[in-house]
Design a protein around this nucleic acid. Structure first.
Lengths: 200, 200
DNA sequence: ACCGTAACACTAACGGTTAGCGTTTTGAAA
DNA sequence: TTTCAAAACGCTAACCGTTAGTGTTACGGT
């Protein structure tokens, strides 16, 4: 199940990768809006319909690598030390994600994203999906008995922290500042009679 | 300046209203995705280009009435009792907005919005703009000296409360629950040496 | 009465996306 | 090995939202 697979899937992955690489190169060279789908397909030497069988939309070409974003968030919750505190674990992960996307190498890509309304909109709705997954992971943790609404709210707040920190002058400081707020918000959802212990 | 003007502006407003009414009627009758722009224009007896001179996009046809959303939020901040507490004022306004859009009459429209990914995405990016306006209003209040990051975060949290409450089983209770979290988050941003007084 | 302008219309196109249909490749069953 | 069904890929042709270009008309101010 892990790697019994052969030529077909390798070819498919290669085609997918070639499309993504070509697209990103063209977008960075000449601007996202200035490059059409037909052009990307031609340059990658595939048909337009093939391109769309690998990527659901033009925007998805740009956010190809960010599919692990969701997994990293949920694993920060499910894979933390047993009974460990939730918020610091989330804070560390958001820290890492912000650092990752404000690194020097990624700068041109994020500049391109910020320059295109279509890409910004797409990213935002991606983040919303991620927030829902995160909320589900939090709600599923037996150590944290909070209402579904509280879980969804905290998940959204964490995503907000990520989005706001990326735009802040000092992203790392912004994460810390917003997470002090989130910590307080989370404490406020603690079922009564549970205060004082180490925050689970 | 208020209403000295005559026929032209009345005609323009009438055309705009006719387009919006026709569009909403067709969308509700047959579904948002099943009705094309050309069809709306034909039914409203205007040219497609005319339609787009009144509305920036197809989605904007649906959210025509919601332009005061932004104003209501910022006024909840700027127009509250002098030195009055921020969070309860916000909470009251969000309560009212949630009540307004979960009212019986509005149900079909929101059902249609929830059924269309394009509309959901559009609404979300609308809300983001609203959050930025709200953050600006909060940051501009001289009685609340908080960092820009804290203001943006609280504004986002408030918008999150609205979005989550709309989907919750008991919207009003969800607003209250999330605002208890927001209140705690806001308290955590208080500059040190200011605790204990009535929350401004 | 006259002019500038704003509303409106028409045509034609562009770019993203998809349906329909045919071809080739490939993994596995027979 | 042969055979078969699925999957990947391709092509054509279109649909849909949106816009540029180019007028034409109706109106308000002078």
């Amino acid at each position: 199940m892990s790697t019994p697979t052969g030529r077909r899937e390798r070819k498919k992955a290669a085609t997918r990768q070639k499309i993504a690489d070509t697209a990103l190169r063209l977008f960075l060279e000449r601007g996202y809006d200035a490059v059409g789908i037909r052009e990307v397909a031609a340059e990658a030497d595939v048909a337009v319909t093939t391109l769309f069988s690998h990527f659901a939309s033009k925007e998805a070409l740009v956010f190809e690598q960010d599919e692990d974003f969701e997994q990293r968030l949920t694993r920060a919750v499910t894979g933390r030390a047993p009974q460990g505190p939730l918020i610091p674990a989330l804070r560390r992960e958001i820290h890492a994600l912000v650092r990752h996307c404000t690194a020097d190498g990624a700068a041109p890509i994020w500049h391109m994203i910020d320059a295109s309304p279509a890409l910004r909109e797409y990213e935002e709705s991606m983040r919303l999906r991620h927030a829902e997954s995160l909320a589900a992971a939090i709600a599923a943790d037996p150590g944290l008995s909070r209402s579904p609404t509280a879980c969804r709210a905290i998940a959204r707040f964490a995503i907000d922290a990520y989005a706001l920190a990326r735009e802040a002058a000092d992203p790392q400081a912004a994460v810390d500042e917003i997470f002090r707020m989130i910590e307080a918000a989370w404490e406020a959802t603690r079922p009564s009679g549970t205060r004082g212990a180490a925050g689970a």
